[in-house]
Amino acid sequence: MNEDDQSPQLTEDEKKLFEDLMPEDLAEIIDAGVNRRHFLKLMTLTGGGMLAWQSAVAEQVLTRPLAPTPPVTFNPETIENGVNVALKINGAPQKVTVDSRMTLLDTLREKLDLTGSKKGCDHGQCGACTVILDGRRVLSCLTLAASCEGKSVKTIEGIAQGNQLHPVQTAFIKYDGFQCGFCTPGQICSAVALLDEAKNGDASYVTEDLRKKSGPAMLSKEEIRERMSGNICRCGAYPNIVAAIQEVHSGKAVEQNWLLV
């Protein structure tokens, strides 16, 4: 789903929808960082439903920082085995001093106020802490912050491009790819990286012919399921997660039925 820079053409219906749904404090929202086109896109993409915009919710989204707040300066002497680490987080250079035992996950959450990455198991068994490290999805709970010197970390807070939601984020909303939402940051980071892996032609255990290389892989549902199996969702949103990824991967909407009879 490539973004183009042109304003989208609106149908009359969409204009009406737009007027009806656009919050009054539009200017403020644009200033604070969600632009008109992004908002419109959300609405039109959410298909049969529509995205309701809750002002309190908006406020919360827009007032919390996307980039980490400057870290508290630590006196390395109070930290056992302190290690100074310079790394990039969501594009911004950061310097932190960490206890050598501190994981990347705890560094993000406890030192840098980036609480989007979640601790579901702390042992690499659930995927809720998935971040993208130098372009690859990894588990931040099994990554020492100390080992990240010079590396580039992308967290859920940095998945949106500026103020534009990533298509995977939009699709998760559209297809209801979550319930409680706790695994969602990890699912989304995982899915975003997965799309690149598919472009690289990477294989999985369910790939039919491993010897046939390769070029971009068009993923079946079964492939998406296997490749997303490192992200546990206890609420059971799997079918919707697969649909969301499938849409972004294929560029085609996925049928999602609920019959009322």
Partner: peptide, 12 residues
């Protein structure tokens, strides 16, 4: 290799 662990763990 692909039968083991998860995509994230195999990346690490």
């Amino acid at each position: 290799i692909l039968a083991g662990a998860s995509g994230q763990i195999r990346n690490m």
